[in-house]
């Protein structure tokens, strides 16, 4: 589904993070990315989403080579990316609007969007939060809603950047449970190795 070949990336200041990096995600793959800070894990996700352009290498997603901005429109509709900071992802006043933002962009009707909002809240175990104000939730709740906002797009692949950060024990269990029961493929970055082991079936080690 995702095939990265010989990817290298350089920041504007000249610092290199990825060097001839290869990665393949096939249906059913649940891959954990492990590595120190600054090894380019988030950069990798941004390259997949077309937010950053690699210096060299090929990005092949859903069997198509992706190079230009237009190529990534489809990628963004089919791949869900959970950002590290929930406040970057949740920008609407209410939870309901935040969850409906993606589906409405995909051309769903208001009724369909509302149905998706309800289903999503059910999946993440946060029913009754529809009218709550996103920014006033606790860090863990924001994390869960941000995850919901990604799921609401009904993506085929998930990219999860530190999904467990800020979650309490119960929410961590919920998240692990959701990930273990989904048939979606995903890439997950986390510093918590125990949790990574619980939710993945492959590991990639990245070094600086």
């Amino acid at each position: 589904m995702i095939d990265l070949r010989n990817i290298s990336y350089q920041y504007e200041n000249g610092e290199e993070v990825l060097n001839n990096f290869n990665l393949a995600l096939k249906p059913g793959d649940k891959i954990g990315l492990v590595g120190p800070n600054g090894s380019g894990k988030t950069t990798l996700f941004k390259i997949i989403m077309g937010l950053l352009t690699p210096k060299q290498g090929e990005v092949i997603i859903f069997d198509q080579k992706r190079e230009k901005e237009e190529d990534f429109v489809e990628v963004r509709e089919r791949v869900g990316f959970l950002f590290q900071d929930s406040d970057d992802l949740l920008f609407c006043p209410t939870v309901e609007e935040d969850l409906a933002f993606g589906p409405l962009n995909l051309g769903k009707s208001k009724e369909e969007a509302k149905r998706i909002v309800n289903e999503t809240l059910d999946i993440i175990g946060m029913k009754g939060f529809e009218k709550k104000v996103s920014h006033r939730l606790s860090g863990g709740q924001k994390r869960m809603i941000a995850f919901g906002a990604v799921l609401a797009m009904q993506p085929e692949v998930l990219l999860l950047d530190e999904p467990f950060s800020g979650l309490d024990e119960e929410a961590v269990e919920k998240m692990v449970d959701i990930l273990n029961n989904t048939d979606k493929s995903y890439l997950v970055v986390s510093h918590n190795e125990d949790l990574i082991d619980k939710v993945t079936n492959k590991l990639y080690y990245m070094n600086e």
Partner: peptide, 22 residues
């Protein structure tokens, strides 16, 4: 910097320059 990330997150959720409301 945050505004750049927020915009990226919006792009990742299919934003194409049009706001919809519920």
């Amino acid at each position: 910097e945050r505004s750049t990330r927020v915009y990226e997150a919006m792009l990742c959720r299919g934003f194409r320059g049009e706001f919809h409301n519920l």
